[in-house]
Write a protein that binds this DNA or RNA. Structure first.
Length: 287
DNA sequence: CGGCAGGCGGTTA
DNA sequence: TAACCGCCTGCC
């Protein structure tokens, strides 16, 4: 049993595992499979229990009636409090967003339990480099291949070996051929070079430093700012968000600058949260 | 077969 | 500096 510790938090509001783990911010959490005969949630996803990874730890996370229960291989209470952003009042965020832009009402109600996780920076960098021009099932698959090939073993559970996310050194030292074998496509060169840059120059902390890394452009940089550096003003514009901004504000799909401008006018300092509520709502609804 | 998936780097005008 | 274009891969 790898989940040897149990940490619980009570009276947690604005928390829903499906929303948190399926809103596109993170790729290594999966819904726990139900036994035959038990009902599933929407899209076959069990609403209450997920297993996955945070930093060097693996965990099984459940939520019921305000109680967040984390069975984990390790990590302090503070670590998990920070990871799930429990110190932030999402009720206030949603209220403020809707007050300033009533069009966000449906999206914030639909994804009411979204929280922006406090993820490891290096993992976020590599994960979003992989995400470019890619789809979610393959992004997940690519990341798991990378972990199996280059990550440290964490332990075993249910007959499966579990692996941590690779260290910067492990990826910087990876050979081109080995990376190519993982079917990462042209992203493998970006991964290797970014890992090397991370090792040599230290962890990036500004948008400019991120953009200087090979394979990181405006969209990926904004994702890293939002999910890895906790800059909740960052507003990543991907193909979905382009469609959404066109739909909501009649902005041309080519006018990305106009989209940034409108986002900051309408969503202000909470632009990053707004992006997550909108993305989750529209992707599930299919516009 | 072309088109697309949570784009980016490089080249061109 | 804006507009194209090719790109690994997999799935439709």
């Amino acid at each position: 049993m790898i989940y040897k510790e149990k940490i619980e938090f009570d009276n947690i509001r604005d928390f829903e595992p499906v929303h948190i783990f399926e809103c596109g911010q993170v790729f290594r959490w999966v819904p726990e499979k139900r036994k035959e005969g038990e009902p599933n949630g929407q899209a076959g996803i069990v609403a209450d229990v997920y297993t996955g990874f945070a930093g060097a730890y693996t965990a099984r996370v459940g939520f019921d009636n305000g109680r967040l229960s984390i069975e984990t291989s390790g990590g302090s209470r503070e670590f998990w409090h920070d990871y799930f952003d429990l110190g932030t009042d999402y009720g206030e965020i949603k209220e403020t967003l809707v007050k300033n832009e009533p069009k966000l009402k449906d999206a914030t109600e639909y994804g009411y339990g979204i929280r922006i996780l406090n993820q490891d920076l290096f993992e976020t960098i590599i994960s979003f480099i992989i995400s470019q021009n890619n789809n979610i099932p393959r992004i997940r698959k690519n990341i798991e291949s990378l972990c199996e090939r280059y990550g440290e073993e964490i332990g075993n559970e249910d007959g499966k070996t579990l692996y941590a996310f690779p260290t910067p050194k492990a990826l910087a030292d990876a050979s081109e051929d080995d990376l190519a074998a993982l079917k990462l496509g042209y992203r493998s060169a970006y991964i290797k070079e970014s890992a090397r840059c991370y090792l040599e120059k230290g962890s990036p902390c500004t948008r400019e430093e991120l953009l200087n890394m090979h394979g990181i452009g405006p969209k990926v940089a904004n994702c890293i700012m939002l999910f890895g550096l906790r800059d909740v003003e960052a507003f990543p514009i991907d193909t979905w968000v382009k469609h959404i901004m066109t739909d909501m504000y009649d902005i041309s799909g080519k006018d990305v600058q106009g989209m940034y401008k409108t986002a900051y006018e309408k969503f202000g300092k909470y632009a990053g949260y707004a992006q997550q509520y909108l993305f989750y709502y529209y992707r599930d609804k299919g516009l």
